[in-house]
Design a binder for these strands. Sequence first.
DNA 1: ATGAAAGCGCTAACAC
DNA 2: GTGTTAGCGCTTTCAT
Lengths: 343, 343
Amino acid sequence: MSVTIKDVANAAGVSPSTVSRVINKKGVISKETEEKIYAVMKELNYVPNKTARSFASGSTMAIALVIDVTDVRAYSNNYFNNSVFGIETVAHQNGFDLIITNGRRNGIENFVEKTVLSKKVDGIILPETMAKTDFLRKLDEIDFPYVILGQPPVSHQWCNWVDINNVQGGQIAVEHLLDKGYGKIAFLSSGEKEVFNRNRIKGYQEALIKHQIPVFPDYIRHCESSLENGLTTAKEMLTGENPPDAFICSDYYLGIGVKRAVAEMGLSIPFDIGLIFFDNSPVAELVEPSITTVDIDTFGLGQQAASILINKIKDKKLNGRQTLIGTNIIERESTQRLRRSMS
Amino acid sequence: MSVTIKDVANAAGVSPSTVSRVINKKGVISKETEEKIYAVMKELNYVPNKTARSFASGSTMAIALVIDVTDVRAYSNNYFNNSVFGIETVAHQNGFDLIITNGRRNGIENFVEKTVLSKKVDGIILPETMAKTDFLRKLDEIDFPYVILGQPPVSHQWCNWVDINNVQGGQIAVEHLLDKGYGKIAFLSSGEKEVFNRNRIKGYQEALIKHQIPVFPDYIRHCESSLENGLTTAKEMLTGENPPDAFICSDYYLGIGVKRAVAEMGLSIPFDIGLIFFDNSPVAELVEPSITTVDIDTFGLGQQAASILINKIKDKKLNGRQTLIGTNIIERESTQRLRRSMS
DNA sequence: ATGAAAGCGCTAACAC
DNA sequence: GTGTTAGCGCTTTCAT
């Protein structure tokens, strides 16, 4: 039914292996036979069968992005979304297909079998939340290429990973606020276990120290992400002694909570209080006042991840590729204490 | 290196075909050999090679979701996101892998070759925006399974598709507003070419007629989606003669624009003006007042699409499966004119 | 520069 | 019930 390499070979008066060479641009073929073969391929509308190629060559030219569907917050956001497209873009540029697969369906064990051992893909991209030491060790054992989205457990610091530069994110948030005339900056984190929060706080502290501003432990609060928690925590801090005059929040739920708290207390953003949060969601530009954010290039994150993985696939010895993706400030109204003109 | 079906056969003292039968649960095998084989498979840690199976059987057990990376709005949203997970869920339940692929890279022509003709997947899910008649005809020619996300061009009404029930969405929006005491309802659409807008307006009109409320053509406005357009259009309508007392908007950009217009005119939501928009984004719950939305079950949309596609793959004669996914109202403050207690 | 031939791991007639 | 056998379409030595 469908035209095969043999048909092309026959029609062109050559052997299948010659056609194969042309397809793969391998070995040396004379200009004329090459052209002849291209012509025949076009005429016969020949398209190589990917499955057969994968089977024969032993490489699938596909990578998988593992997701955790049980964790809605982990995927139902722009971060995830844009990473996917970054990954897809680089994958296709390199001739790879992207498979999306849920890792946590029947336990990670089962997942290894189904996707990794079954030779369906040549490598995987794994969110840090699913990169448990045991699992990684299994991958190491069979020398299976992977890259981690986020920072790996201590046992695997040597492996390939890519992450957002959260330290730098914390720093530029502080510096932006200082620049805008705020001096008593608090940090509302969505949890102290998360590495990304810890790194952001690290950056926050480093920036304060660098500018010789005292770091008050009380200015760093952890609470589960929600509007309510943001609201109550901010109120508590603002009514306490030594209230801050600016807040950096881990996400927009906490951030909007802070915004409410400020409003309920009759204070003003940005004149009394500065506000900045991570994640440049549409929320930030649509509320009033609009909120300055730390924007994260998740498309770039995905691109890097895919790029490193593909290199690893090509060269199994590749290790220690550790990329941090920079963040930047999207300036909006919530930090315009100085009433500088906005560009 | 890796253990094959032959190894299992040898170790179990049977032939490869018997092992194959066990793997595929095909034909009849005696209880004892079956158990024996399972035991050996476990012991040897055997995992069937998917590529080899695909190659031998001619079916890849994979489907592709085609996306359009050039169209940011088309994918960088919750709709898309959740559909992906709906698709993945059903795919995996049926043993299929999900491949994400960009259709618009080198033209749709090239795409056909690479993904469809190369036998990499057994079927594709295609957004309506990419479902051009020419392309569909090609797929038809080679009898390649597809389902369309959204409504297909007129030439292909007979094919399988799944869509949001936008007519019903328009209806329930109107009915909710009527129920809440609003009577002069306007519709701000993000474009008159889009089928989904046309359907929502259809539902809007039907609901009005059903309740014997006059349909003013002037109450239906089309403008490109943006906060500014929402703002100016709403202002214009509110300052005109016969101003509406409620707005239904195609998306949250227009919706927030209307909200601003109402505020700037010194009117109140929900007491003077009711507001409801499509797409239950976080924006809706985080602004003040929070906005009632028409919520769309895109996870269900994805599930249905995958389910239909897989049925089509199994039974190529399957056609005309046309599913509409219902919408529902998420009630918030912006439509509480009557000050009913909220649950 | 090209051809011949083996084989990748599995499935599916077809035998028995 | 189970074994035998012939491919599936391609890549890849090894010849020439």
